[in-house]
């Protein structure tokens, strides 16, 4: 059976998390071997912005700084996510690796199928969105307030949001499975502190693993189940590994030159060049 690498769950700071994902992606597109699945958490709370989002327009930067919430820009598209009580996954693969393709939406559909299978093992019945819906209320810049085709809902409420970047025949998709969820915290980070109405709207549109299970959640079990979902849907076996020396070196460079810098995190700019 074909084997892919899995990098087991570990918490990192927000900047390191993005540097690791991009290092794996850049290394893979330059001739990496098998696809890579990674699970990770966040050492401290953070808002991740989509590649194209404007920090000042989308979130309350001063509030975030005051609360110790880091702001990091992702290499992927999509909208803002408040991280902390979530399990994040990433998958790096070539577009030509079966069953993936050049088709962005189809790739979402396949990966969503893996997450559905995994969450079912945790007792959560997740459905894939057939048609997307716009953002709810005043938090349209928040990832979980919006759902697109092939994203994941439980009873009409979003539980997992994902985003992609692709180039040179490879893609990186990462996504966030909500373990717990605080709508007021989301509103505050999005610049709407105390917006009870907005929080209610978001709460009605979003759910979490904890809410669905009705009790404590083991992150290890969740990782095991979602990993099994990937294996079963994609007909491969995941083998634990770490970063290669080349990936580690690129992670360090990306961290220093890109992800710890306000110039990138708050303003964005030319990406990819030189990596």
């Amino acid at each position: 059976m074909v084997t892919w690498r899995i990098i087991p769950f570990k918490r990192h700071d927000p900047f390191e998390n993005m540097a690791i994902d991009e290092a794996i992606f850049r290394t893979h597109q330059r001739g990496g071997e098998s696809p890579v699945v990674r699970f990770y958490g966040w050492k401290n709370p953070a808002v991740s912005l989509g590649y194209f989002q404007d920090a000042e327009e989308e979130i309350d930067c001063a509030y975030c700084r005051g609360k110790g919430i880091d702001i990091v820009r992702r290499p992927t598209g999509g909208k803002a996510v408040l991280h902390g009580d979530d399990l994040t996954y990433s998958l790096v693969a070539g577009e030509s690796i079966p069953p993936f393709s050049h088709d962005v939406v189809e790739t979402y559909r396949i990966i969503s199928g893996c997450i559905i299978r995994g969450l079912a093992k945790s007792g959560i019945d997740v459905q894939m969105v057939e048609e997307g819906r716009g953002g709810v209320g005043s938090a349209g810049s928040f990832c979980f307030a919006t759902s697109y085709k092939n994203e994941l809902l439980v009873g009409g409420r979003k539980i997992c949001g994902s985003a992609q970047v692709r180039t040179r025949g490879a893609f990186l998709q990462h996504g966030s499975v909500l373990i717990d969820f605080d709508p007021l915290a989301v509103c505050a980070a999005m610049g709407r502190t105390g917006d009870a109405g907005g929080a209610q709207e978001i709460e009605a549109a979003v759910t979490s693993v904890r809410e669905m299970i009705g009790g404590d959640v083991s992150v290890d079990d969740l990782c095991l189940n979602i990993a099994a979902g990937f294996e079963e849907v994609l007909h491969m076996r995941l083998v634990e590994g770490g970063l290669s020396p080349g990936e580690e070196a690129l992670r360090d460079r990306l961290l220093e030159e890109k992800y710890v810098r306000d110039e990138w995190n708050l303003k964005g700019g030319r990406t990819g060049s030189g990596y």
Binding site: G78, Y148, A163, V165, T167, G272, S273
Partner: peptide, 18 residues
């Protein structure tokens, strides 16, 4: 040649232009 010259934003995705 073979390096980025921009990025396209699609729904949920960023695709580098090579």
């Amino acid at each position: 040649q073979g390096e980025p010259f921009g990025v396209i934003e699609s729904v949920k995705g960023a695709t580098e232009l090579i």
